[in-house]
């Protein structure tokens, strides 16, 4: 059934464009509709300050979700990203505190992210170990390793210039939001129009066909993971520079939030389908829901249950819609 849907979507580019556009459009409508619904209940929700805080505080999730979406489109998964973000934030913060030039501290997170993820990509692609096993193992290694090395000592006294997330472009647009938009647009264009970007869909959708078209599957997967590492590094920088202290521990359940954003954004876990624009909208939607639940006084005990229902509803609705599209 799903295979048929994918095939049908793949063969007709015009229809595929339509399907994807409407997926993103629906998420955008959900983001706006939710804002209005909550705004009617409590107008303070619509204050520019609150909307920008919601974006600002969660931009790192959207940035990481862009990389995760690529990984999932290529037919893989990554459970280690939350732990990696914790490790990268610590590396960058430690360098900054110990007097390394700020730019070096920033670059270190990006480079280390690429190295770790590319390494995982090599194991997955060339040694053919399933991504879930490799990244599950890496999660354990990073998490335990981080505590072993740092002893969980918080990083304080960070230099002011380190705080990338505090920069406001043109005195208006906060840097995290800018980065989120920039990364999303660049990645979306690259995935849609470049040969290497399209290769990701090919590998995820039909590895055999991709091979016949002359696309190297292992090389594509390593590339995807390396890029994912780059985005994880960027996300870690936003995460690390938002506050004055870095916790030196692994942020709890972060990987789950990131995967959820990708999946709700319309990336098929079966590979081959999805865009990063959808995942960014989804990350915004999830953040907005978390904030909205506080605004409309949902008892905090029920928040997680409501989130679960929302994910379920989004995913089921999306699948039913795709099925209808394929049937039409």
């Amino acid at each position: 059934m799903t295979a048929m849907t994918l095939a049908g979507v793949g063969t007709d580019p015009r229809r595929r464009l339509k399907v994807l556009a409407s997926q993103e459009a629906l998420l955008a409508i959900a983001v706006i509709g939710l804002a209005i619904a909550v705004g009617l209940n409590n107008p303070r929700f619509l204050a520019a300050r609150n909307l920008s805080d919601v974006l600002l505080g969660n931009a790192y999730i959207a940035v990481a979700a862009v990389g995760m979406s690529m990984v999932i489109v290529s037919g893989n998964i990554d459970i280690s990203v939350g732990a990696l973000i914790g490790v990268l934030a610590t590396i960058s913060g430690t360098l900054a505190v110990n007097g390394a030039p700020i730019v070096v501290a920033w670059l270190a997170a990006l480079v280390a992210g690429v190295v770790v993820m590319a390494f995982q990509g090599v194991i997955i692609a060339y040694l053919r170990i399933p991504a879930i096993v490799v990244t599950l193992g890496m999660l354990s290694i990073l998490k335990g390793g981080l505590i072993s090395v740092t002893g969980g000592k918080w990083i304080t006294d960070l230099p002011d210039s380190f705080h990338l997330a505090d920069i406001e472009l043109f005195g208006l647009l906060p840097f995290p939001v800018f980065l989120m938009i920039l990364v999303t647009i660049l990645a979306a264009l690259w995935m849609r129009y470049s040969a290497s970007g399209r290769a990701i869909y090919a590998v995820g959708g039909n590895a055999e066909a991709a091979r016949l078209c002359g696309i190297s599957q292992p090389r594509t997967i390593v590339m995807v993971f390396a890029l994912h590492g780059l985005f994880a590094g960027a996300a870690a920088l936003l995460y690390a520079t938002q506050l004055r202290v870095i916790q030196s521990t692994v942020p709890p359940n972060l990987e789950l939030t990131i995967i959820t954003a990708s999946v709700v954004g319309g990336v098929s876990i079966l590979g081959g389908v999805g865009t990063v624009v959808g995942s960014t909208f989804a990350a915004v939607l999830i953040a907005e829901i978390a904030s909205a639940l506080v605004f409309i006084d949902v008892s905090p005990y029920w928040i997680r249950a409501v989130q679960g229902v929302l994910i379920l509803v989004t995913v089921i609705a999306d699948i039913l819609r795709r099925r209808r599209m394929a049937g039409a």
Partner: peptide
């Protein structure tokens, strides 16, 4: 499905 119910069932337990 089970990521969604991971959140849902835990939420029900808390609620």
């Amino acid at each position: 499905m089970t990521i969604a119910t991971l959140a849902l069932y835990r939420g029900l337990a808390e609620g």
